[in-house]
Amino acid sequence: MKRLSIYAGVAFLSAALLLSGCVSNKKFRSLQARHDEMRAKEQALTEKYQEAQQQLSSANTRVTSLEDQIASERANVKSLQEALNQCLTSSNQGNVNISKLVDEINASNRYIQHLVNTKNKSDSLNMVLTNRLTRSLSREEMQDVDVQVLKGVVYISLSDNMLYKSGSYEISDRAGETLSKIAKIIADYRDYDVLVEGNTDNVPISQPNIRNNWDLSVLRGSSVVQALQNEYGVDPKRLTAAGRGEYNPVAGNDSESGKTRNRRTQIIITPKLDQFMELIDKAPESSPNSEDVPRDTTRTSPLRQ
């Protein structure tokens, strides 16, 4: 619009000059200068217009980009809100599960405490059993008898010199008094099972009715079991005879003293297995009373080396 106005002005001046006839040089130069000035302004305005158009286009591009970002952020916010709602729902369910888990943990702790109390009772009984047995044995008998408590099990190790006739599985006369004392202790502890296990050194046996050390060890264990049953009245249902030959040594077989230690029969006294299985299969309904826990829980060390 401004450009048309300028041209119109120039045309009007030119027409006026033509109508008026002649115009002085001074006046013409003035009009020419005015015309050049107006052309310069027109050029400047055109450049500004073009620059403004470019800025507007750039601004529109930025607006479009911002609108896209806003739309993306709104979608992200919606997704986060949905995830939050799902978490809140899961959390409510999780609180219920946590409560159940706490109850189960408490029940497990009560069960563990019950097992600990039972083990402490067993350890205390083992201590009493061991003390009674060692007090009943004479000093001479203790030369051939070793009593230990290892991992809740009582081990009574008897030397073959005391138990058997040389190179035989027949029980000697001097073993009778010692076995009678052991049998009395076993009979008093009815909740314990008894395993009698024969052991030998690595010297091969040469007997017509004994094939090897396996046979000898089992026969020796069986001899003690039958003596406990037939001569001392131990319930045979509590007894088990076994042999380990030369394969469970407690010393080296490269010396006579080592071989002597390896030639032994062990009477192993353990709580009945079915009682332990009952504990495993069924947890207690309530926590045991604190007074059930024995005060003396000292570990038992071997009485003799």
Rank of each mutant, 00 (worst) to 15 (best):
R174F: 00
R174N: 10
R174K: 15
A175G: 05
G176Y: 04
G176T: 14
G176E: 02
E177I: 08
E177N: 08
E177R: 06
E177Q: 06
T178Y: 00
T178E: 00
L179K: 03
L179M: 11
S180C: 02
K181P: 06
K181W: 10
K181D: 11
I182G: 01
I182C: 03
I182Q: 00
I182R: 00
A183N: 08
K184A: 11
K184H: 08
K184F: 08
I185P: 00
I185N: 03
I185V: 15
I185E: 11
I186S: 11
I186G: 03
A187G: 11
A187Y: 12
D188A: 13
Y189H: 06
Y189A: 07
R190C: 03
R190I: 15
R190Y: 13
R190D: 05
R190N: 10
R190S: 14
D191Q: 12
Y192A: 12
Y192D: 01
D193A: 15
D193F: 09
D193M: 10
V194Y: 06
V194I: 15
V194D: 01
V194C: 12
V194F: 06
V194Q: 04
L195V: 13
V196C: 05
V196Q: 05
V196P: 02
V196E: 07
E197T: 14
N199K: 14
T200Q: 13
T200C: 14
T200K: 07
T200D: 12
D201Q: 06
D201N: 14
D201E: 13
N202C: 07
N202K: 01
N202G: 09
N202S: 14
N202V: 06
N202F: 01
V203I: 15
V203H: 09
V203W: 04
P204A: 13
P204F: 06
P204H: 10
I205Y: 10
I205F: 11
I205M: 09
S206C: 04
S206K: 10
Q207A: 14
Q207I: 05
Q207Y: 09
P208I: 08
